[in-house]
Write a protein that binds this DNA or RNA. Structure first.
Lengths: 229, 229
DNA sequence: CGACTAATTGATTTGCTTCAAATATCGTGG
DNA sequence: CCACGATATTTGAAGCAAATCAATTAGTCG
């Protein structure tokens, strides 16, 4: 297992400050897997029998409602885990996981993962904390969805993405993976039309610079002001 | 500690099938506390230093946004825990907890609770599962808030409440604690006006029977149909 | 160069909020 | 026991944010 993998595992909040030997143990038990852009890693409703950590690339978690409409629940970056809570609970996956770009993941069968938890009990403590962090995030998103207008929610979504997946460029902070107006709409409970109009207005005002599947934040403070007010 | 307490603890998913001696240990470490209706148990932003289980009554968890608008995140019934995730993460409470009716809770200081977890490791396993269940619930609510119309969301909220706090009456299933139009609005991201109009229409159609701070579900199937379509 | 996917942009509609006021219900103290 | 203040609910009217409808245009890729 190459050193790069261990450093990425170290970044995962689930494995955080475990000793290097433990990380090696964990990495060795996992199966690395290459993913092409658009590939579905697991499907909503599938039995949750695998735990995943992203090594490279970007993955989105999308929930589909009975009527076919979709909501993007989160974007995953390197070092983050997904599928794990469902697997540990012996529940079906509550959403699809789809590679947004070409990616590399490490996956474990849930029984192997439980064995790792037994050998490294710290993982158990972290898993509650990790679920807790996401719980709080989701609670905030619910409050936001309940009370804020669409433009604010789009501003927040773009800020969050720039935060977690920002790459500095001469023009500003660029979201470092391709994202469509449709996906931003599915993150914010809006429509691609409204997102398009909103980004167009922001581009006009010099707050953002957007193009096909690309968004650059030029004026973070202005966006933050949109999100707050 | 009276037997009634132990049976209630048994109902808590966190303590589920622990042996009776363990439950007695847990109950003995906790401080019982009587709450009057409307009393605030902890406040959003307070350091999370206590874990709580409800013994009797009903508690609501309410998040307030910077602009003062509120969102009701959940209603707690006997046997359910609250505040625990924040406490275990050494995080401030992300929301207020307020007794809706006269209630009785059992509370632990977080260090005592951690000690209980050490003595009864099963609690740790359960805590992840418990956080996971709520995680999934919240994800569903986000999808719903993102894509459904207000009437559907109100229908879902009423169904959920009838499910978790339903008391059978001659007329149908009554939500067994007082709930205002305002609170239903804060659960669904709507306004008390819209909730009032919606309930009035349902009452008219014989689907519900509502009064001041009371809601009775007379035709569950019809409500379910509203939620689905 | 097509075929496809993504984005834009105008016109129209609508579900829901907001504004405004009246009415109903409850608890409480005189 | 009734009056009165506080809380909760109803209902109408107006306004608006954002969805929907409807084309058109712009990139991208094989």
């Amino acid at each position: 297992m190459p050193i790069a993998d261990l450093n990425l595992l170290r970044r995962a909040e689930m494995f955080g400050s475990l000793p290097t030997e433990a990380l090696a143990d964990i990495a060795a038990a996992g199966l690395p897997r290459r993913l092409v852009a658009g590939e579905r890693i697991f499907a909503q409703g599938d039995p949750g029998v695998t735990c995943h950590t992203l090594m490279e690339g970007r993955v989105k978690i999308v929930q589909t409602l009975p009527d076919g409409t979709q909501a993007v629940l989160r974007f995953i970056g390197p070092g983050e885990m997904y599928g794990t809570v469902a697997a540990l609970m012996d529940q079906p996956f509550p959403a699809d996981a789809i590679a947004v770009t070409e990616s590399v993941e490490l996956r474990w069968g849930v029984s192997n993962f439980r064995e790792l938890m037994r050998r490294h009990p710290e993982i158990g403590v972290r898993s509650t904390a990790s679920a807790g962090t996401r719980l709080f995030d989701l609670q905030n998103r619910i409050s936001e969805l309940s009370t804020e207008r669409v433009e604010q929610r789009i501003a927040r979504a773009v800020l969050r993405l720039a935060e977690q997946a920002g790459r500095p460029t001469p023009q500003g902070t660029e979201i470092d993976f391709p994202i469509t107006r449709q996906e931003l709409a599915e993150m914010t409970g809006s429509t691609l039309h409204t997102v398009s109009r909103t980004l167009a207005a922001w581009d006009q005002a010099g707050v953002t610079a957007s193009a096909r599947r690309r968004v650059i934040v030029r004026d973070r403070a202005a966006l933050q002001a949109m999100a707050d007010h």
